[in-house]
Amino acid sequence: MSNTQRSNLLHLGTITLLAVAFFILPTYHVGNLSRIMVLAVYAIGYNFLFGYTGLLSLGHALFFAAGMYGLGLSMELFDLTTAPALVVGLASALVISAVIGFLALRTSGVSFMIVTLMFAQAGYLTILYFGTYTRGDEGFVIQQADRVLFGVDLSSDTGRYFAALALFSVCFLAVAHLVQSPFGRTLVAIRENEERARMLGYDTVTHKLKAVIISGTISGLAGAAYALLFGYAGATFATVQYSIFPLLWVLLGGAGTTIGPLIGVIFMFYLIDLSSSITSAYMLIAGVVLVLLTLFAPQGLAGELRKRVFKWMP
């Protein structure tokens, strides 16, 4: 079996497994998985920039929130139906990531990290400042009756799960395909040695800008989907914490692997969920696990698997 075939098998197998999970897992875990899949889309978006292009952003919550509020506000204030609102959400994330990318890419390394962080912080404060429309920290509810897309009730367990699965599958496969394309390979070349990529004649700045836009738009899509599937948009999702989460997920799952983001989200979600039923100090456990992982699995879970067992893994 060629490596491409193996990769395809892994990707399709993952999706099949997730589809089957709906029928065999208890209700509680089905609910969790639908959240996890949407958050994994966010992580996939983040991984595209961080894992494949080598740009560490601390401002992705802004893109997530752009999608969330683009969809939420257009439904709340202008009574748009789901499909056009989703487009608005996607478009706002695209525009904002293009602007931020354009400005922030003048910097690199830690400066890039801080600039994205500050733009995101300004975005968070802007949501609060326009509290009259956004209801600030409190946020607003997207009513159950409005959450219907192409006749599918997204507030039902089944509708939500398969909508999340569809979204996840599309992003998962698209990014997996993209990183194998010449464009994706150029990004990896930039990650490994930007100077060299430039000497070889690649327009690295345009490539990086495209990567920011793709990454930001996928993150925004996740934000819009989160609001739509779970019926709530709020400023908490624009805080720094939500910029750090995708970084953690990706680092834990394995940066620069296609499956890593999903694994990272699942790991983190259940780490908190399980340890919180043992002790109220569950963040302490989370902290210890993070430290242990960096000590003993520095490439992340999928990254270690690739290094030690499945060398072919994408």
Binding site: E138, V141, F230, G231, Y232, A235
Partner: peptide, 24 residues
């Protein structure tokens, strides 16, 4: 609702948590 099979839920104070939870 789905794991502990509680009869009801109660107790939330901060409004944003109420807003986030009420749809569910």
């Amino acid at each position: 609702a789905t794991q502990h099979e509680c009869d009801i839920a109660f107790g939330t104070l901060f409004s944003h948590v109420v807003y986030g939870s009420a749809p569910r």
